[in-house]
Design a protein around this nucleic acid. Structure first.
Lengths: 233, 233
DNA sequence: CCCTCCTTCGATACACCGTACTGATCAATA
DNA sequence: TATTGATCAGTACGGTGTATCGAAGGAGGG
């Protein structure tokens, strides 16, 4: 029974089925693979199966490290939070830096826009960012810190989502900006032709079209101005 | 060939398969059914199949009215926009009303938070809302209208998403607020115990916990204050 | 030292999704 | 009336997240 199995000596007995060297796995490797997929082909391209395949592993292996797809998405977001390190002197600069850094991260990882604000951010990297902000706001009334930081965060979430949504819509039309305007233009033209949106029409026609950077900064400045006025009192 | 098919006289030939009275369909009926599903069980419960089943119709019937699931979602959002009619005297009141109405709509249709800001809103109801805002901002510099309205919109999107996300997280824990704090509390406790978030810790510990209404209003007021200052100049 | 039990793990399988395809049906035309 | 063309909707495909369960490996007792 030790040297003979099924009546075959070792020599004729086939080797065990060549266990394919269980690929070493870790939460970090999984998240990195998922982010790579999302960066390349968008969030829809992130499926547990594709991630597992990229790591040369069966789908269910992942469940040893994460408890479902949602947790993977949470980990992805927190991983990006590691790249968002607000800095600067004084609360205003720190908040502005937080906003710009978040926007920058979303430019590099467009899928972030789909996830921003979708769940409470409690990962270590998000908390670390919160710590920096809280420290920078140390000088102001303790009761004002949360609502103020929350307001900036809210603005950033919405502004980034809008911006990315618009960028994607442009890209979906044709690949250049000309096509987009060539398609949206006529649509709005027809909408305006109904005469139901006169004020909107004059705004769209007569207003200078600001680029995304300026638009983002103007809104942010307004918010920070308002916060400053409130905090100063 | 007229009265005899397959060698069977009418008398023995079965009736045609009792076409189940093709249910009358319309984009509106489809959207209403989808919204009903989403209100009841969240956005994940909205599938073309479930919508079709609710309307007693095959899944592919829907494709005569919409071009895919994304268009259905767009229609759902625009349908809710019909309930968001900003009103009031002066641009500030109109913008505040827009914000509150959007938030209110998201309270009644939580799934709206998942969609807000996800795509450009170009439906007739969204445009109608834009028209009201544009008209209310008629007095101010034309170049300022878009960035200002956009900033408020961005804030609302982010604030609403955050609020709904938090509400859902609470609900997911146990069904009451006690459970949520009982679970989040210890988690933050342990996080704080690492000593890596001292400033955050004092804020969370010492600050008064504002309710969602107040938090939303404070951020909105800050933003509107900042806008007012910028417009006045 | 061998056998058994228990735990751990991951492949299989399920229920469901969005929608491409295609066969059938109906209206209009020759 | 016969034929053609367009229109419609059911079937089926390729994919998803994950529950389930059988097999493999380690630990403990005889």
């Amino acid at each position: 029974m030790r040297c003979i199995v099924n009546g075959m000596l070792v020599w004729e007995r086939p080797e065990p089925p060549e266990r394919p060297t269980p690929a070493p796995l870790s939460r970090e490797r999984i998240v990195r693979a998922a982010i790579r997929l999302a960066d390349a082909d968008g969030l829809d391209a992130v499926s547990l199966r594709k991630v597992a395949t990229a790591l040369e592993v069966g789908p269910m292996r992942l469940y040893g490290y994460i408890d479902g797809k949602q947790e993977l998405l949470d980990l992805m977001v927190d991983a990006v939070h590691a790249e968002i390190r607000p800095s600067g002197d004084g609360w205003r600069e720190v908040l502005r830096s937080l906003a710009e850094a978040t926007r920058h991260a979303a430019h590099e990882h467009e899928w972030l826009a789909d996830l921003l604000g979708g769940r409470p951010q409690l990962g270590p990297n998000a908390l670390a960012g919160g710590e920096i902000v809280a420290a920078a706001l140390g000088g102001v009334d303790v009761d004002a810190v949360m609502p103020v930081a929350g307001a900036v965060n809210a603005y950033v979430i919405g502004a980034v989502r809008r911006e990315i949504a618009e960028r994607r819509a442009e890209r979906a039309t044709g690949l250049d900006k000309k096509r987009w305007q060539a398609l949206l233009g006529p649509y709005l033209e027809r909408a305006f032709a109904t005469g139901r949106y006169p004020a909107l029409e004059t705004v769209v026609r007569d207003a200078a079209h600001l680029n995304a950077d300026e638009t983002f900064r103007i809104g942010l400045d307004c918010l920070l101005d308002g916060i400053e006025a409130r905090i100063a009192q």
